[in-house]
Simulated assay, not measured.
Amino acid sequence: MPALSIVIPVFEAEEYLAGCLDTIIDGDVDGGGDRLEIVVVDDCSPDGSRAVAERYAARDGRIKVITTPANAGSGPARNFGLAQAKGDYVWFVDADDELKPGAVERVLAAVTGPRRPDVVLVQHEKMRDTGAIETGELPELAEHCPADPSGFTLTEWPRIVDYTHTPWTKVSRREFLNGIDLGFPTGWYTDIPWTYALLRRAERIAVVVECCYQWRQRAGSSITRTRDDRHFDVFTQWQRTWDDFEGVDDPGVRVALFNHMVWHLLLVIGNTERVEPKKRREFFRRTSELYRRYHPGPDAWQPADGVTGLKQRLLAARAYLGYEALRQVYRLAKRVNRTDPQEVPAPEVTASEVEASSAINGAVVSGSAVQSAPDDASGLPAQAKLPAPRVSRP
């Protein structure tokens, strides 16, 4: 039985699959046939992805190529691959991403020992299509872990929900995964209910803070940069998460999860590459509904400082016009700050921005002035015992 099964869902990845497989094969420095299994799941890809996988499988017995009955998306493809996997542990890897050198060794070291973890969280980095590298936040989070980072539960460290809710940063014990009967749902943002259900049930979680995974964000290939009504699936997935946590009474866990959900939903609506402008009001309304439904109470959670706190208060007040006004004023302030008034004429202010400036003065908010608020688009500013989460992927 292999120690580790790497499951790769594949759809229209012909251009990238070879690079992904190379980093996995080269990363298994021992090369032993009993350590590693690679399950390539062809999700009925219409391009030459399967041919690439079969070419690799023909010369490497550790690679197995299977095909889903019908194209159903990455979540169901992962479920299909898991059913075929034989390893002690399972790692879901995306076909257009790559493993970092030493990743396989680090993961195998983390799962070896008398007290084996149910889940291992691994550090990642994001490479943008510009070539810029952004480092994941796991080491920073681990510095403040109140428990043993080599073995803890969600209750012992609720703040771990702030780590990216992507399946490729989690290596799970296969027997544990099958025992809790946890699969990926259909739709977009399926990582959300899967990740938090996994962490809720794990009796022992460990972290690997050395970088193991490179998410390669490619133009046109990521849902984070795609305008589509399927972004509304995020509400279904967060509702599934809260339904699963209905019996969890631990206040620390519920506060951390709520804090993370609010950050994530504000991130999605604030991304102009995701939600169509004409759909923003409806997206805000549904965000406000979840905010009000699962707010843990004013004694447990308070809005943040700065611009994010203003947005959170507007969610509580269901004040969409105030939210849009805030966005317009904040964007105007950033435009002004990017110019040198001594050398460049001030930008012309549009009528909508003038209206926004007036409207924000009447919004039901409190907090710092917009002009002096920090640029917190990347995450929530720190709150008492609950610093800012950062997520690399939806």
Rank of each mutant, 00 (worst) to 15 (best):
F11N: 08
Y56D: 04
A13W: 00
P46I: 13
I38C: 01
G33Y: 13
D26A: 15
L21D: 05
F11Y: 15
L17N: 00
S45A: 07
V40C: 02
L17T: 00
G19C: 03
L4M: 07
D26Y: 11
L36D: 06
G32P: 01
R35V: 12
A3G: 11
V10D: 09
R59I: 09
D28F: 04
T23W: 06
V40H: 00
V7A: 03
A57S: 02
D34V: 08
A53Q: 09
V7W: 08
I24K: 00
D26R: 14
A3K: 14
V10C: 15
Y56L: 02
D22F: 05
Y16F: 11
D30I: 14
D47S: 15
S45P: 01
G19E: 05
L21K: 05
L36E: 07
D42F: 07
E54C: 08
G31V: 13
R50H: 09
D60L: 09
G48N: 10
S45M: 03
D22R: 13
S5N: 04
L36S: 05
F11S: 08
I38Y: 05
A18G: 08
T23C: 03
I8M: 05
G33M: 12
D43W: 09
D43N: 15
D22G: 06
A58D: 03
L21I: 09
V10T: 12
G19N: 07
L36N: 04
G27H: 04
G19A: 07
D42I: 02
D60F: 13
G31T: 12
R50N: 08
I6A: 02
R50A: 13
P9V: 00
A53N: 06
A58V: 00
L4C: 05
S49P: 01
V39D: 10
R55P: 02
Y16H: 07
V41S: 01
D22P: 04
D43M: 12
D22S: 12
V52S: 04
I38M: 05
A58R: 06
V10K: 09
V40A: 03
D34Y: 10
R35M: 10
D28Q: 05
I6S: 05
V41F: 09
L4E: 03
V40W: 01
R55S: 13
A58N: 01
D60W: 12
D30K: 14
I24A: 07
S5Q: 05
E12S: 08
A51C: 10
E54D: 12
E37S: 06
D34Q: 12
D22V: 08
I8E: 05
A51G: 10
D26T: 10
A51R: 13
P46S: 14
L36V: 01
P9C: 03
A18S: 11
V39C: 13
D28H: 08
L21S: 07
D42E: 01
D30A: 15
D60Q: 10
E37Y: 08
I38G: 02
A51D: 14
D30R: 15
R59L: 09
A57Y: 04
E37F: 07
D60V: 07
D30W: 15
L4D: 04
F11K: 06
D47W: 15
F11C: 05
E15M: 00
